[in-house]
Design a protein around this nucleic acid. Structure first.
Lengths: 218, 218
DNA sequence: GTCGATTTGTTCGTATGTATC
DNA sequence: TGATACATACGAACAAATCGA
Protein backbone atom coordinates (compact mmCIF):
# COMPACT_ATOMS: atom_id res chain seq x y z
CA UNK A 1 0.00 0.00 0.00
CA UNK A 2 1.54 3.23 -1.10
CA UNK A 3 -1.07 5.67 0.08
CA UNK A 4 -3.11 6.17 3.18
CA UNK A 5 -6.32 6.10 1.23
CA UNK A 6 -9.20 4.44 2.90
CA UNK A 7 -10.31 1.58 0.71
CA UNK A 8 -13.34 0.87 2.81
CA UNK A 9 -16.53 0.94 0.81
CA UNK A 10 -18.42 3.66 2.56
CA UNK A 11 -20.52 6.32 1.02
CA UNK A 12 -20.38 9.75 2.60
CA UNK A 13 -23.18 10.30 5.07
CA UNK A 14 -26.20 11.95 3.56
CA UNK A 15 -27.83 15.05 4.93
CA UNK A 16 -31.06 13.32 5.96
CA UNK A 17 -29.02 10.78 7.93
CA UNK A 18 -27.32 13.56 9.82
CA UNK A 19 -30.66 15.25 10.33
CA UNK A 20 -31.97 12.04 11.88
CA UNK A 21 -28.99 11.80 14.20
CA UNK A 22 -29.22 15.45 15.22
CA UNK A 23 -32.96 15.17 15.72
CA UNK A 24 -32.61 12.17 18.01
CA UNK A 25 -29.85 13.87 19.96
CA UNK A 26 -31.94 17.01 20.28
CA UNK A 27 -34.92 15.05 21.59
CA UNK A 28 -32.73 13.17 24.07
CA UNK A 29 -30.93 16.27 25.31
CA UNK A 30 -34.17 18.18 25.78
CA UNK A 31 -35.70 15.14 27.49
CA UNK A 32 -38.71 15.31 25.22
CA UNK A 33 -41.15 12.46 25.68
CA UNK A 34 -44.23 11.22 23.87
CA UNK A 35 -46.41 14.05 22.65
CA UNK A 36 -43.80 16.77 22.99
CA UNK A 37 -43.61 19.21 20.14
CA UNK A 38 -40.36 19.62 18.29
CA UNK A 39 -39.31 22.87 16.57
CA UNK A 40 -40.93 23.76 13.28
CA UNK A 41 -39.33 22.67 10.04
CA UNK A 42 -38.18 26.21 9.35
CA UNK A 43 -36.64 26.51 12.79
CA UNK A 44 -34.87 23.19 12.43
CA UNK A 45 -33.68 24.29 9.04
CA UNK A 46 -31.99 27.33 10.60
CA UNK A 47 -30.90 25.48 13.72
CA UNK A 48 -29.11 22.71 11.86
CA UNK A 49 -28.10 24.83 8.90
CA UNK A 50 -29.68 22.58 6.29
CA UNK A 51 -32.49 23.10 3.85
CA UNK A 52 -36.09 22.40 4.66
CA UNK A 53 -36.18 19.60 2.12
CA UNK A 54 -33.46 17.71 3.94
CA UNK A 55 -35.18 18.30 7.25
CA UNK A 56 -38.35 16.90 5.77
CA UNK A 57 -36.61 13.81 4.41
CA UNK A 58 -35.34 13.09 7.90
CA UNK A 59 -38.67 13.76 9.59
CA UNK A 60 -40.50 11.57 7.07
CA UNK A 61 -38.15 8.65 7.69
CA UNK A 62 -38.57 8.97 11.43
CA UNK A 63 -42.31 9.17 10.93
CA UNK A 64 -42.32 5.84 9.10
CA UNK A 65 -40.43 4.29 12.00
CA UNK A 66 -43.05 5.57 14.41
CA UNK A 67 -40.67 7.93 16.13
CA UNK A 68 -42.32 11.17 15.02
CA UNK A 69 -45.80 12.24 14.10
CA UNK A 70 -46.33 15.37 12.05
CA UNK A 71 -49.69 16.96 11.55
CA UNK A 72 -50.44 19.73 9.12
CA UNK A 73 -51.23 23.04 10.75
CA UNK A 74 -50.10 21.84 14.15
CA UNK A 75 -46.54 20.68 14.15
CA UNK A 76 -44.37 17.63 14.60
CA UNK A 77 -44.52 15.59 17.76
CA UNK A 78 -42.43 12.95 19.44
CA UNK A 79 -43.89 9.46 19.47
CA UNK A 80 -42.85 6.13 20.97
CA UNK A 81 -41.61 3.70 18.36
CA UNK A 82 -42.37 0.03 18.98
CA UNK A 83 -39.47 -2.13 20.18
CA UNK A 84 -39.60 -4.21 17.00
CA UNK A 85 -40.59 -3.64 13.41
CA UNK A 86 -41.15 -5.99 10.52
CA UNK A 87 -40.34 -4.05 7.33
CA UNK A 88 -42.46 -6.13 4.95
CA UNK A 89 -45.45 -5.47 7.19
CA UNK A 90 -44.86 -1.74 7.15
CA UNK A 91 -44.73 -1.88 3.38
CA UNK A 92 -47.74 -4.19 3.10
CA UNK A 93 -45.67 -6.50 0.97
CA UNK A 94 -47.00 -9.81 -0.24
CA UNK A 95 -44.78 -12.51 1.19
CA UNK A 96 -44.22 -15.97 -0.23
CA UNK A 97 -44.74 -19.14 1.73
CA UNK A 98 -41.17 -19.71 2.83
CA UNK A 99 -41.00 -16.22 4.35
CA UNK A 100 -44.30 -16.73 6.13
CA UNK A 101 -43.19 -20.06 7.50
CA UNK A 102 -40.12 -18.40 8.98
CA UNK A 103 -42.24 -15.76 10.65
CA UNK A 104 -44.59 -18.49 11.83
CA UNK A 105 -41.79 -20.28 13.64
CA UNK A 106 -40.80 -17.08 15.40
CA UNK A 107 -44.45 -16.60 16.25
CA UNK A 108 -44.59 -20.03 17.88
CA UNK A 109 -41.37 -19.36 19.80
CA UNK A 110 -42.89 -16.20 21.22
CA UNK A 111 -46.16 -17.92 22.09
CA UNK A 112 -44.29 -20.63 23.92
CA UNK A 113 -42.21 -18.13 25.84
CA UNK A 114 -45.27 -16.13 26.83
CA UNK A 115 -47.03 -19.21 28.19
CA UNK A 116 -43.92 -20.31 30.03
CA UNK A 117 -43.38 -16.92 31.62
CA UNK A 118 -47.03 -16.69 32.55
CA UNK A 119 -46.86 -19.97 34.43
CA UNK A 120 -43.78 -18.88 36.36
CA UNK A 121 -45.45 -15.69 37.52
CA UNK A 122 -46.43 -17.10 40.87
CA UNK A 123 -50.17 -17.04 40.42
CA UNK A 124 -52.23 -19.53 42.41
CA UNK A 125 -54.25 -22.11 40.51
CA UNK A 126 -57.39 -20.29 41.48
CA UNK A 127 -56.15 -17.00 40.09
CA UNK A 128 -55.09 -18.76 36.92
CA UNK A 129 -58.56 -20.15 36.37
CA UNK A 130 -60.33 -16.94 37.29
CA UNK A 131 -58.18 -14.90 34.97
CA UNK A 132 -58.69 -17.07 31.93
CA UNK A 133 -62.39 -17.51 32.60
CA UNK A 134 -63.14 -13.98 31.47
CA UNK A 135 -62.29 -15.02 27.93
CA UNK A 136 -65.01 -16.54 25.80
CA UNK A 137 -63.71 -18.88 23.20
CA UNK A 138 -65.29 -19.70 19.89
CA UNK A 139 -63.93 -23.16 19.17
CA UNK A 140 -61.87 -21.99 16.24
CA UNK A 141 -58.23 -22.61 17.06
CA UNK A 142 -56.69 -19.69 15.23
CA UNK A 143 -59.22 -17.39 16.82
CA UNK A 144 -58.96 -18.72 20.38
CA UNK A 145 -55.25 -19.33 20.57
CA UNK A 146 -54.20 -15.76 19.68
CA UNK A 147 -56.81 -14.27 21.99
CA UNK A 148 -55.49 -16.42 24.82
CA UNK A 149 -51.83 -15.62 24.19
CA UNK A 150 -52.51 -11.91 23.90
CA UNK A 151 -54.44 -11.95 27.14
CA UNK A 152 -51.85 -13.72 29.24
CA UNK A 153 -49.07 -11.68 27.62
CA UNK A 154 -50.53 -8.41 28.85
CA UNK A 155 -49.87 -9.56 32.39
CA UNK A 156 -46.15 -10.02 31.84
CA UNK A 157 -43.48 -7.71 33.16
CA UNK A 158 -41.66 -7.59 29.86
CA UNK A 159 -43.94 -6.11 27.19
CA UNK A 160 -41.47 -6.83 24.39
CA UNK A 161 -42.59 -10.43 24.03
CA UNK A 162 -46.11 -9.32 23.28
CA UNK A 163 -44.85 -6.68 20.88
CA UNK A 164 -42.76 -9.17 18.96
CA UNK A 165 -45.54 -11.71 19.07
CA UNK A 166 -48.08 -9.22 17.71
CA UNK A 167 -45.81 -8.17 14.89
CA UNK A 168 -45.38 -11.71 13.72
CA UNK A 169 -49.04 -12.53 14.23
CA UNK A 170 -50.16 -9.57 12.15
CA UNK A 171 -47.85 -10.46 9.30
CA UNK A 172 -49.29 -13.96 9.23
CA UNK A 173 -52.89 -12.76 9.40
CA UNK A 174 -52.43 -10.17 6.70
CA UNK A 175 -51.03 -12.84 4.42
CA UNK A 176 -53.74 -15.39 5.24
CA UNK A 177 -51.21 -17.86 6.49
CA UNK A 178 -53.16 -19.64 9.20
CA UNK A 179 -55.82 -21.00 6.90
CA UNK A 180 -53.13 -22.85 4.97
CA UNK A 181 -52.18 -24.93 7.98
CA UNK A 182 -53.35 -28.46 8.59
CA UNK A 183 -54.24 -28.36 12.25
CA UNK A 184 -54.66 -31.54 14.27
CA UNK A 185 -55.20 -30.29 17.80
CA UNK A 186 -58.00 -28.66 19.74
CA UNK A 187 -57.51 -25.44 21.61
CA UNK A 188 -58.98 -26.91 24.79
CA UNK A 189 -55.99 -29.18 25.09
CA UNK A 190 -53.70 -26.17 25.36
CA UNK A 191 -55.87 -24.46 27.90
CA UNK A 192 -56.24 -27.57 30.05
CA UNK A 193 -52.52 -28.18 30.16
CA UNK A 194 -52.01 -24.54 31.03
CA UNK A 195 -54.43 -24.68 33.94
CA UNK A 196 -52.86 -27.91 35.13
CA UNK A 197 -49.41 -26.33 34.76
CA UNK A 198 -48.36 -29.36 32.77
CA UNK A 199 -45.28 -27.84 31.22
CA UNK A 200 -43.98 -31.06 29.75
CA UNK A 201 -47.17 -31.62 27.79
CA UNK A 202 -47.28 -27.98 26.75
CA UNK A 203 -43.82 -28.33 25.34
CA UNK A 204 -44.99 -31.24 23.22
CA UNK A 205 -48.04 -29.33 22.07
CA UNK A 206 -45.97 -26.35 20.95
CA UNK A 207 -43.56 -28.68 19.26
CA UNK A 208 -46.52 -30.07 17.37
CA UNK A 209 -47.60 -26.60 16.34
CA UNK A 210 -44.21 -25.77 14.92
CA UNK A 211 -44.21 -28.92 12.83
CA UNK A 212 -47.55 -28.41 11.10
CA UNK A 213 -47.95 -29.66 7.58
CA UNK A 214 -49.01 -27.32 4.89
CA UNK A 215 -52.48 -28.00 3.57
CA UNK A 216 -52.45 -29.64 0.20
CA UNK A 217 -53.90 -27.24 -2.31
CA UNK A 218 -56.91 -28.92 -3.87
CA UNK B 1 -76.51 10.88 11.73
CA UNK B 2 -77.80 13.24 9.12
CA UNK B 3 -75.01 13.03 6.62
CA UNK B 4 -72.80 10.35 5.20
CA UNK B 5 -69.70 12.08 6.39
CA UNK B 6 -66.98 9.88 7.70
CA UNK B 7 -66.34 10.75 11.33
CA UNK B 8 -63.43 8.37 11.64
CA UNK B 9 -60.30 10.04 12.92
CA UNK B 10 -57.99 9.47 10.04
CA UNK B 11 -55.64 11.91 8.49
CA UNK B 12 -55.59 12.00 4.74
CA UNK B 13 -52.80 9.87 3.32
CA UNK B 14 -49.68 11.83 2.62
CA UNK B 15 -47.95 11.90 -0.70
CA UNK B 16 -44.84 10.12 0.47
CA UNK B 17 -46.98 7.32 1.87
CA UNK B 18 -48.64 6.84 -1.47
CA UNK B 19 -45.26 7.01 -3.15
CA UNK B 20 -44.07 4.19 -0.89
CA UNK B 21 -47.10 2.08 -1.73
CA UNK B 22 -46.79 2.69 -5.44
CA UNK B 23 -43.07 2.03 -5.35
CA UNK B 24 -43.52 -1.31 -3.60
CA UNK B 25 -46.27 -2.28 -6.01
CA UNK B 26 -44.12 -1.29 -8.96
CA UNK B 27 -41.22 -3.38 -7.72
CA UNK B 28 -43.47 -6.37 -7.11
CA UNK B 29 -45.24 -6.12 -10.45
CA UNK B 30 -41.97 -5.79 -12.34
CA UNK B 31 -40.54 -8.67 -10.33
CA UNK B 32 -37.48 -6.61 -9.49
CA UNK B 33 -35.10 -8.33 -7.12
CA UNK B 34 -32.02 -7.30 -5.18
CA UNK B 35 -29.75 -5.05 -7.19
CA UNK B 36 -32.31 -4.10 -9.81
CA UNK B 37 -32.41 -0.45 -10.79
CA UNK B 38 -35.63 1.45 -10.42
CA UNK B 39 -36.58 4.44 -12.62
CA UNK B 40 -34.90 7.76 -11.97
CA UNK B 41 -36.42 10.22 -9.58
CA UNK B 42 -37.48 12.45 -12.46
CA UNK B 43 -39.08 9.53 -14.27
CA UNK B 44 -40.96 8.47 -11.16
CA UNK B 45 -42.04 12.05 -10.71
CA UNK B 46 -43.68 12.02 -14.14
CA UNK B 47 -44.89 8.44 -13.83
CA UNK B 48 -46.73 8.98 -10.56
CA UNK B 49 -47.58 12.61 -11.20
CA UNK B 50 -45.98 13.94 -8.04
CA UNK B 51 -43.07 16.25 -7.44
CA UNK B 52 -39.53 15.02 -7.18
CA UNK B 53 -39.41 16.14 -3.56
CA UNK B 54 -42.23 13.79 -2.61
CA UNK B 55 -40.64 10.97 -4.55
CA UNK B 56 -37.47 11.58 -2.60
CA UNK B 57 -39.25 11.54 0.76
CA UNK B 58 -40.62 8.12 -0.10
CA UNK B 59 -37.31 6.79 -1.39
CA UNK B 60 -35.51 8.07 1.68
CA UNK B 61 -37.91 6.34 4.03
CA UNK B 62 -37.56 3.08 2.14
CA UNK B 63 -33.80 3.54 2.23
CA UNK B 64 -33.84 3.76 6.02
CA UNK B 65 -35.79 0.51 6.15
CA UNK B 66 -33.17 -1.16 4.00
CA UNK B 67 -35.53 -1.64 1.08
CA UNK B 68 -33.80 0.72 -1.34
CA UNK B 69 -30.27 1.92 -1.87
CA UNK B 70 -29.64 5.10 -3.82
CA UNK B 71 -26.22 6.16 -4.98
CA UNK B 72 -25.33 9.54 -6.36
CA UNK B 73 -24.55 9.48 -10.05
CA UNK B 74 -25.77 5.93 -10.47
CA UNK B 75 -29.36 5.52 -9.46
CA UNK B 76 -31.59 3.83 -6.93
CA UNK B 77 -31.54 0.08 -6.50
CA UNK B 78 -33.71 -2.52 -4.84
CA UNK B 79 -32.31 -4.08 -1.69
CA UNK B 80 -33.44 -6.83 0.67
CA UNK B 81 -34.69 -5.48 3.98
CA UNK B 82 -33.95 -7.60 7.05
CA UNK B 83 -36.88 -9.58 8.49
CA UNK B 84 -36.76 -7.58 11.73
CA UNK B 85 -35.75 -4.08 12.74
CA UNK B 86 -35.19 -2.48 16.10
CA UNK B 87 -35.97 1.22 15.70
CA UNK B 88 -33.84 2.47 18.62
CA UNK B 89 -30.87 0.68 17.09
CA UNK B 90 -31.42 2.31 13.72
CA UNK B 91 -31.52 5.66 15.48
CA UNK B 92 -28.52 4.90 17.67
CA UNK B 93 -30.59 5.88 20.67
CA UNK B 94 -29.28 5.57 24.18
CA UNK B 95 -31.54 3.17 26.02
CA UNK B 96 -32.12 3.00 29.73
CA UNK B 97 -31.65 -0.12 31.79
CA UNK B 98 -35.22 -1.33 31.79
CA UNK B 99 -35.37 -1.23 28.01
CA UNK B 100 -32.08 -3.07 27.73
CA UNK B 101 -33.23 -5.71 30.14
CA UNK B 102 -36.28 -6.33 28.00
CA UNK B 103 -34.15 -6.73 24.90
CA UNK B 104 -31.82 -8.98 26.88
CA UNK B 105 -34.64 -11.37 27.72
CA UNK B 106 -35.61 -11.59 24.08
CA UNK B 107 -31.96 -12.18 23.29
CA UNK B 108 -31.86 -15.11 25.70
CA UNK B 109 -35.06 -16.55 24.29
CA UNK B 110 -33.52 -16.50 20.81
CA UNK B 111 -30.27 -18.03 22.02
CA UNK B 112 -32.16 -20.83 23.69
CA UNK B 113 -34.23 -21.51 20.60
CA UNK B 114 -31.15 -21.57 18.39
CA UNK B 115 -29.41 -24.10 20.60
CA UNK B 116 -32.53 -26.22 20.81
CA UNK B 117 -33.06 -26.22 17.05
CA UNK B 118 -29.42 -26.97 16.46
CA UNK B 119 -29.60 -30.07 18.64
CA UNK B 120 -32.68 -31.34 16.82
CA UNK B 121 -31.02 -31.06 13.45
CA UNK B 122 -30.02 -34.71 13.33
CA UNK B 123 -26.28 -34.27 13.49
CA UNK B 124 -24.24 -37.14 14.93
CA UNK B 125 -22.24 -36.52 18.07
CA UNK B 126 -19.08 -36.67 16.03
CA UNK B 127 -20.29 -34.00 13.62
CA UNK B 128 -21.35 -31.87 16.55
CA UNK B 129 -17.89 -31.98 18.07
CA UNK B 130 -16.11 -31.45 14.77
CA UNK B 131 -18.24 -28.46 13.90
CA UNK B 132 -17.75 -26.64 17.15
CA UNK B 133 -14.04 -27.45 17.30
CA UNK B 134 -13.29 -24.93 14.55
CA UNK B 135 -14.14 -22.16 16.98
CA UNK B 136 -11.42 -20.88 19.26
CA UNK B 137 -12.72 -19.50 22.47
CA UNK B 138 -11.15 -16.85 24.63
CA UNK B 139 -12.50 -17.68 28.06
CA UNK B 140 -14.55 -14.51 28.23
CA UNK B 141 -18.19 -15.51 28.45
CA UNK B 142 -19.72 -12.61 26.55
CA UNK B 143 -17.18 -13.08 23.81
CA UNK B 144 -17.45 -16.86 23.52
CA UNK B 145 -21.17 -17.28 23.97
CA UNK B 146 -22.22 -14.96 21.11
CA UNK B 147 -19.61 -16.44 18.78
CA UNK B 148 -20.94 -19.89 19.54
CA UNK B 149 -24.59 -18.98 19.06
CA UNK B 150 -23.90 -17.15 15.84
CA UNK B 151 -21.97 -20.11 14.52
CA UNK B 152 -24.58 -22.74 15.20
CA UNK B 153 -27.35 -20.41 14.03
CA UNK B 154 -25.86 -20.15 10.56
CA UNK B 155 -26.55 -23.83 10.10
CA UNK B 156 -30.27 -23.51 10.72
CA UNK B 157 -32.95 -23.70 8.06
CA UNK B 158 -34.76 -20.65 9.34
CA UNK B 159 -32.46 -17.62 9.14
CA UNK B 160 -34.92 -15.38 10.98
CA UNK B 161 -33.82 -16.59 14.39
CA UNK B 162 -30.28 -15.46 13.72
CA UNK B 163 -31.51 -12.16 12.33
CA UNK B 164 -33.62 -11.47 15.41
CA UNK B 165 -30.83 -12.66 17.68
CA UNK B 166 -28.29 -10.39 16.00
CA UNK B 167 -30.54 -7.38 16.23
CA UNK B 168 -30.99 -7.83 19.95
CA UNK B 169 -27.35 -8.65 20.49
CA UNK B 170 -26.20 -5.52 18.70
CA UNK B 171 -28.51 -3.31 20.71
CA UNK B 172 -27.07 -4.73 23.90
CA UNK B 173 -23.47 -4.40 22.76
CA UNK B 174 -23.92 -0.84 21.56
CA UNK B 175 -25.33 0.08 24.93
CA UNK B 176 -22.62 -1.73 26.90
CA UNK B 177 -25.18 -3.91 28.59
CA UNK B 178 -23.23 -7.13 29.07
CA UNK B 179 -20.57 -5.64 31.27
CA UNK B 180 -23.25 -4.64 33.77
CA UNK B 181 -24.22 -8.26 34.38
CA UNK B 182 -23.08 -10.29 37.32
CA UNK B 183 -22.18 -13.57 35.70
CA UNK B 184 -21.78 -16.74 37.70
CA UNK B 185 -21.26 -19.40 35.09
CA UNK B 186 -18.43 -20.48 32.80
CA UNK B 187 -18.96 -20.81 29.08
CA UNK B 188 -17.49 -24.34 29.07
CA UNK B 189 -20.49 -25.55 30.97
CA UNK B 190 -22.77 -24.53 28.14
CA UNK B 191 -20.58 -26.10 25.53
CA UNK B 192 -20.24 -29.37 27.42
CA UNK B 193 -23.97 -29.72 27.92
CA UNK B 194 -24.48 -28.95 24.25
CA UNK B 195 -22.06 -31.65 23.15
CA UNK B 196 -23.64 -34.11 25.58
CA UNK B 197 -27.10 -33.11 24.30
CA UNK B 198 -28.14 -32.57 27.88
CA UNK B 199 -31.22 -30.50 27.16
CA UNK B 200 -32.54 -30.54 30.69
CA UNK B 201 -29.35 -29.02 32.03
CA UNK B 202 -29.21 -26.52 29.17
CA UNK B 203 -32.67 -25.39 30.09
CA UNK B 204 -31.49 -24.70 33.62
CA UNK B 205 -28.45 -22.86 32.38
CA UNK B 206 -30.49 -20.56 30.16
CA UNK B 207 -32.90 -20.01 32.98
CA UNK B 208 -29.94 -18.91 35.05
CA UNK B 209 -28.85 -16.50 32.33
CA UNK B 210 -32.23 -14.86 32.19
CA UNK B 211 -32.23 -14.29 35.94
CA UNK B 212 -28.89 -12.51 36.21
CA UNK B 213 -28.46 -9.88 38.82
CA UNK B 214 -27.39 -6.46 37.84
CA UNK B 215 -23.92 -5.55 39.02
CA UNK B 216 -23.94 -3.14 41.89
CA UNK B 217 -22.49 0.14 40.72
CA UNK B 218 -19.44 0.84 42.85
C1' DG C 1 -7.58 11.57 -19.93
C1' DT C 2 -11.23 14.53 -21.22
C1' DC C 3 -15.83 15.69 -22.27
C1' DG C 4 -20.65 15.20 -22.03
C1' DA C 5 -24.76 12.95 -20.56
C1' DT C 6 -27.16 10.99 -16.73
C1' DT C 7 -28.50 10.71 -12.02
C1' DT C 8 -28.69 11.62 -7.26
C1' DG C 9 -27.63 15.30 -3.57
C1' DT C 10 -28.97 19.72 -1.84
C1' DT C 11 -30.85 24.18 -1.62
C1' DC C 12 -34.17 27.87 -2.28
C1' DG C 13 -38.52 30.13 -3.34
C1' DT C 14 -43.41 29.94 -3.65
C1' DA C 15 -48.05 28.62 -3.13
C1' DT C 16 -51.61 26.05 -0.62
C1' DG C 17 -54.24 23.68 3.04
C1' DT C 18 -55.11 23.24 7.88
C1' DA C 19 -55.35 24.18 12.82
C1' DT C 20 -55.55 27.58 16.51
C1' DC C 21 -56.79 31.76 18.60
C1' DT D 1 -63.98 36.85 10.35
C1' DG D 2 -59.34 37.53 10.20
C1' DA D 3 -54.58 36.69 11.50
C1' DT D 4 -50.92 33.69 12.57
C1' DA D 5 -48.34 29.49 12.64
C1' DC D 6 -47.40 25.36 10.62
C1' DA D 7 -47.02 21.39 7.60
C1' DT D 8 -47.83 20.03 2.65
C1' DA D 9 -46.43 20.11 -1.90
C1' DC D 10 -44.32 21.69 -6.12
C1' DG D 11 -40.67 23.20 -9.28
C1' DA D 12 -36.38 25.26 -10.58
C1' DA D 13 -31.58 25.53 -10.07
C1' DC D 14 -27.00 24.03 -9.18
C1' DA D 15 -23.46 20.74 -7.15
C1' DA D 16 -21.34 16.32 -7.15
C1' DA D 17 -20.68 11.64 -8.56
C1' DT D 18 -20.75 8.10 -12.13
C1' DC D 19 -20.30 6.17 -16.58
C1' DG D 20 -19.32 5.72 -21.34
C1' DA D 21 -17.73 7.56 -25.76
Amino acid sequence: MKSNRNYQVQQPPKMYQQVITQLVEYIESEQLSEGSKIPTERNLSELLGVSRSSIREGIRSLELLGYLDSRQGEGTFVSNPPPFLIPPQLLKQQLDHIYLQNYYEVFIMCSKQIVSLSLSQGLTNKELIEKTSVLNFTGDFWSDFPEWIEFIATGLQNPFFLSLWSNNYNVLVENDYFCTLNLKVQFNVFLDCYLERNEARLKELFHGLSKLDKLDPI
